[in-house]
Nucleic acid binder design. Structure first.
Lengths: 223, 223
DNA sequence: AGGCCACATCAGGGAATCCCTGATGGCAAA
DNA sequence: TTTGCCATCAGGGATTCCCTGATGTGGCCT
């Protein structure tokens, strides 16, 4: 209706496989005076097609897409359109995917649980060239980096050989006593290794450690 | 703007913990001439409060809420407001939750992956007093009933609603005490649920239970 | 109406574990 | 040599695990 700033609208491309979510984001974008939803994609392939059609200024991408995943899409976008920033907007827990997303080339990560204003704040921050992460997530990463200046990519690289061995066994469903017997060491020793694993990986308790180990073990087998 | 049918608008109450999703659904509802979003709730408790305030004609409820789950909310609604139909609108695969939702008292199940028109069709169908399920899901259930094949394939189907809830929390890295606090139940109760989970799923100890739960939770989120 | 069974809730108690502090010796880099 | 990481283990209180057993409710079958 109001044709006051026809030239400088910031074009946003939305990639999400849930139509309802796309509609919600779209409305959120369009009610900002300087933003415009230039297109919506429900798959990675469609997103790449629309890049050519609309030449957007920023992308909002969901992690879980049908077929090619959001993370893979981000990697492809990084190669072909490295100047266009990508903000991940996902329902998945940020502690699981935020770092992975940034390493794939995304400039920020917002959970759908967050208030809608956070999304707009994140978009503007990313457009300025900054990264966006929740304070909680920033603290988590910062703490890990300060504990041991890792130039490497994965916190797994920080583990000693013994620790990695224990970590792998945890991921395969071994209890503490099982591991002690397997390695022919004291239960107390295994407990110490587990404590160090929690420290190095920034985990809160045994439940989180087991969860992380199982997830890692699954992915390790595939690669 | 157009004030033509001020008297007989159908009031819809939306329950979802994702603000963006609520906004999307709300817009979808409001652009229908005879529908009106009378309120939005982000939790089960808030939903129950708003029932008194707005007396809606229908509810759209998400399965995965913080705190009290969507299934539990539906059961409570069934007791207190059995005349108000509930339509489940969830991102989770219908093959996992549709039947469970209907047994809890819901009148229909729509996935967020579906086109937005499907949501409106489902709402109108539920308001007429019918049930709504996707054709695919209807066929699946019909086939199972006709075969007399009541024993599902996955042992997960054996779990009660409460057990499944605990199972999911385990898969998300919650310790026993965390789960007890989350559900506001005794630690002893949670321990009993865990014991039943081990029995029903044929698992040897807590480590195996956690491993299985984590693996299942991962796959569940992606579908 | 009565019986049966699944479900959800909780308790007691011994074994295992978690989680903290702290210790020892080895080895390698600063 | 000092510093730091590594691997090993212990003590001890808190928590969880894992067994047996109990209570009430609600649905279903006869």
């Amino acid at each position: 209706m109001q044709v006051q700033q026809p030239s400088k609208l910031i074009k946003v491309l939305i990639v999400d496989d849930h139509p309802i979510v796309r509609q919600g984001i779209s409305q959120l974008i369009d009610q900002e005076p300087d933003f415009d939803t230039c297109g919506q994609a429900s798959s990675a392939q469609q997103a790449l097609d629309l890049m050519e059609v609309y030449a957007p200024d920023i992308l909002l991408v969901d992690i879980s897409l049908d077929g090619v995943s959001g993370l893979e899409l981000i990697k492809m976008l990084k190669v072909r359109y490295h100047m266009v920033p990508v903000l991940v907007l996902s329902m998945h827990d940020e502690t699981l995917y935020a770092e992975r997303a940034l390493r794939s080339g995304a400039k920020g990560y917002v959970m759908k649980q967050e208030a809608t204003e956070k999304v707009l704040i994140a978009i503007r921050q990313v457009l300025r060239g900054d990264l966006y992460l929740s304070e909680r997530m920033q603290g988590k990463i910062l703490q890990r980096v300060l504990n041991g200046d890792e130039g490497g990519l994965s916190p797994i690289d920080l583990l000693s050989d013994r620790e990695l061995e224990v970590f792998r066994l945890i991921g395969h469903g071994y209890a503490t006593g099982d591991i002690a017997r397997e390695l022919m060491r004291s239960v107390k020793t295994v407990e110490t290794h587990r404590a160090h694993l929690k420290d190095k990986l920034g985990l809160k308790n045994a439940a989180e450690l087991t969860r992380f180990a199982v997830q890692w073990a699954e992915r390790e087998q595939q690669s």
